[in-house]
Amino acid sequence: MASNSVRCTAWAVAAVLLVVVVSAASTGTAVSCGDAVNALIPCGSYLVGSGKAEPSPQCCNSAKELNRMATTVEERRALCRCLKQTEPSLGVKPERARHLLPACKVNLNIPISPDVDCTRIT
């Protein structure tokens, strides 16, 4: 139990630090990387593999809200760059990240992979 608590705390601390650092380096789009990370905090345990096999309803609601925030091509590209940069540092399991959007029925059109070319996002 303490292990899960430590992981959740580490995830929250990393997310807060990431918000502070990335917000300062924001590209000026309506959806900052900090906004994206904040939106996905309810998905933290699922994404790092310490939660259930399927994302929670709260996680899916957050993913849907993030989808509503990223309305332009530039916002989706910025979101892609953010996800690509932050996933490894937060311990996100790639298979969980790839499964999140389909499991939540979110059509964000951003492949979640460290190899994605964000300039190709439309």
Rank of each mutant, 00 (worst) to 15 (best):
A53D: 15
G49F: 03
G34F: 02
A36R: 04
N107L: 05
T119C: 05
W11P: 02
A63G: 05
L108F: 09
A2M: 11
R7T: 14
P55R: 09
C8S: 10
R81T: 13
G44M: 07
S50R: 12
T9K: 05
C104F: 04
A30F: 00
S5Y: 06
K84I: 05
D35A: 03
A14I: 04
Q85W: 03
E75T: 08
T122K: 15
Q58Y: 00
C82N: 10
V21R: 09
P114D: 08
K52F: 01
L90C: 07
I41N: 04
P111D: 10
V13D: 04
L47R: 12
E74P: 00
A15L: 00
C80R: 09
G34K: 06
L17D: 13
A25H: 03
A97V: 07
R96L: 11
S62W: 04
T86C: 10
C82F: 07
A30W: 00
A12Y: 04
G28A: 02
S5K: 08
P55D: 08
N107E: 14
K105G: 10
R76N: 09
M1F: 12
N4C: 13
C43A: 13
L47Q: 12
P114E: 07
V21I: 12
S5H: 06
C60M: 04
L90M: 15
L40D: 01
S89K: 13
T122H: 15
K84E: 10
Q85V: 04
P57M: 04
A2T: 13
L18C: 10
A70Q: 09
K52W: 08
G91V: 08
A2F: 11
G34N: 05
K52N: 10
K105Y: 08
L90F: 14
K105S: 14
A14L: 15
D117R: 13
P55Q: 09
A78I: 00
A10G: 10
N38E: 07
A12G: 03
T122Y: 13
N38Q: 11
S45I: 09
E54I: 03
I112N: 04
N67A: 10
G34Q: 01
A14F: 11
N61E: 03
V92E: 10
S3N: 06
S56I: 01
V22K: 13
L18S: 13
W11A: 11
L90W: 07
